[in-house]
Write a protein that binds this DNA or RNA. Structure first.
Lengths: 352, 352
DNA sequence: TTGAAAGCGTTACCAG
DNA sequence: CTGGTAACGCTTTCAA
């Protein structure tokens, strides 16, 4: 069956009016009184609406966008769509954009700058009005091209130099500081950290925070940051070795600054037959099934996902409307330390 | 800064050729020999390419789509983008589509049929060539409208009656059967199941499979399927109660037919102070951080995510090209039982 | 309150 | 091989 194509002209003919009228009616927003606010006779409008519905008319956005230059759509490019952190942000952005009648296109750069480059071409060709990007590694050059083109762009999660971009960032220094400080207040002194060697800003900042907390506690000499491979199976092995040696050395706790590193940490405990808290304590980052369920609860730093999504979208809209001041263009959010699991404050067996 | 707009005409003028030539060149696919296959002089083509690059030309897809009627894009609508199962499928679809030069728009219906309806309007307005949909609850009517319009549509995860759709489904009866059967072979007899009361086909099928395995084992009288609320906090409470009562009754094992229900199960164990395997055994569904890390390993049914993605996309492409036979339009895939965690076959402490 | 007509940037068609 | 020109469906003046 061929795809039905009902145009504005079909509606106009059937309703006995001009295409202009139909266009007016179809674009009219409903006022608060339920009335359409457009310079069209109420009865005519009603008739047009009816005919449009009967015929199954749907606006051809390609044509509308071509003519008007606006597409009422934005693109969100993350480095891995299957990463929970990103997919939650995507969902939240979609929800808030949807309310304003904006369509969101999601794309995944797979942590690959070349692919990011091509994706950006694609979405620009789609006439999106703006971009929200979680920069992949080495994204600087690719994104500088975007800023040359002049398409409004907001980056989040990782920082990128350049004052053209809107930036929505979590204070990762503070996050790392909180993580280490929590452990210090628990009475631990021998606290180490495991991080990736790839040097993304968010991780470097968390390392800085950890270091700062240790130094303030007069434990600067005990700072130890282990760097592991980014690739999963290598990383997993690395962590097992690090944990095993650390326990021998008398290490009491670890700051594990990403969700995955946290999981590697738990895996190491399992493999080594160690117990969380009894043998070793962790502060993890982000929520995971593990920290949700673990008993005793595993303290973890959570990023304000919904807020990141909302602020990114709001900032982008402001930039699209060219109303964003330089102040607006940098949003700094704080992470939070969760001490109980997501189920922590819920009824326990005792309450039954 | 205004958005730079370089059109095909600018390139044509600068290169001293007609717009037609430029269009030819810009649409030419690279042949295997690296040569462009288009009826254009090689040198001319090269010059056009150079000028296009120099000027920063990018095709306006809205215009191209308007004129050609094809958009080289498809839409994927899932019921929750932040659900790992869906987001992995999205990523995989994106990857395979990208290779063929197709853009994918992802949307999230939030398990809401009305929203699905609107999203479909939106993407049709975007001139997408086809739809891949994970039906939300009550999606039947909404989707029947799509099939009237005649836009090629593939559904996955949940079945929908109607022979217009392509359908990529996992054999959930078999999956439920495998789950129960595994427990039976472990020597358990008192096996129960916890499921949602919302009656989606995939769950009903898993229940059927469980029932079938029990009946074949002569344990038809012991079949017990607990139905819980879909809403998380209610569900969590329900499961705690169910597990507590079940253990008292001497239940040995549970089939937990979704990832979330599995997590509720683990939560119940925690809250009740029970041990997996010692006090109660589970077969879960889908991968999660828990089943990855748990020790002893938790057997779980995994769906062939990559295959679902690939087959859905391939089928949709075939339908778009009107080459899909009725045979093609139903793809049945098998789930697999994983007995070890994802880390199961990896090096353990002993190997260090 | 209504309508005619001029494009938006591209591809398709036809002629050279 | 190359180029002119007519659409595609819509929004947007401008005029009635």
């Amino acid at each position: 069956m061929a795809i039905k194509k009902v145009t504005i002209r079909d509606v106009a003919r059937e309703a006995g009016v001009s295409v202009t009228l139909v266009s007016f009616v179809m674009n009219a927003k409903e006022g608060k009184d339920g009335r359409l606010d457009c310079p069209v006779n109420v009865d005519t409008a009603k008739r047009v609406l009816q005919v449009a519905k009967k015929l199954g008319y749907r606006r051809n956005n390609a044509a509308a966008s071509l003519r008007s230059g606006r597409s009422r759509s934005i693109a969100v490019i993350v480095s891995d769509l299957s990463n929970q952190f990103f997919s939650e942000i995507c969902r939240d952005i979609e929800q808030v954009a949807y309310k304003e009648g904006y369509t969101v296109i999601f794309l995944s750069s797979e942590e690959n700058a070349d692919k990011l480059d091509k994706l950006i071409d694609t979405v620009i060709g789609f006439n999106v009005e703006g971009l929200i990007v979680a920069p992949c590694l080495d994204a600087e050059q690719v994104l500088s091209r975007v800023s040359n083109i002049g398409i409004p762009t907001v980056v989040f999660d990782r920082d990128i130099a350049g004052d053209h971009y809107g930036r929505v960032l979590v204070d990762n220094i503070d996050a790392g500081y909180m993580a280490a400080n929590y452990l210090l207040h628990q009475g631990f002194g021998k606290i180490e950290m495991i991080s990736y060697q790839n040097g993304v800003t968010s991780l470097l900042d968390r390392e800085t925070g950890y270091r700062k907390a240790m130094e303030e506690a007069g434990l600067g000499d005990d700072v130890r940051i282990h760097k592991i491979d980014y690739e999963a199976s290598a990383a997993k092995k690395d962590v097992i070795g690090i944990v095993r040696d650390a326990v021998k050395r008398g290490t009491e706790a670890f700051v594990l600054p990403t969700k995955k590193i946290g999981l590697y940490g738990f895996n190491a405990l399992n493999v080594l037959g160690l117990n969380i808290q009894k043998d070793l304590s962790f502060v993890c980052f982000d929520e995971s099934d593990i920290v949700d369920i673990s008993k005793p609860a595993v303290p973890h730093i959570v990023q304000p996902v919904a807020e990141i999504a909302e602020r990114s979208y709001a900032l982008l809209r402001k930039m699209i409307e060219e109303k964003a001041t330089d102040e607006d263009k940098l949003v700094r959010l704080k992470a939070k330390l969760e001490v109980g699991g997501r189920f922590g404050s819920e009824p326990t067996a005792a309450s039954f």
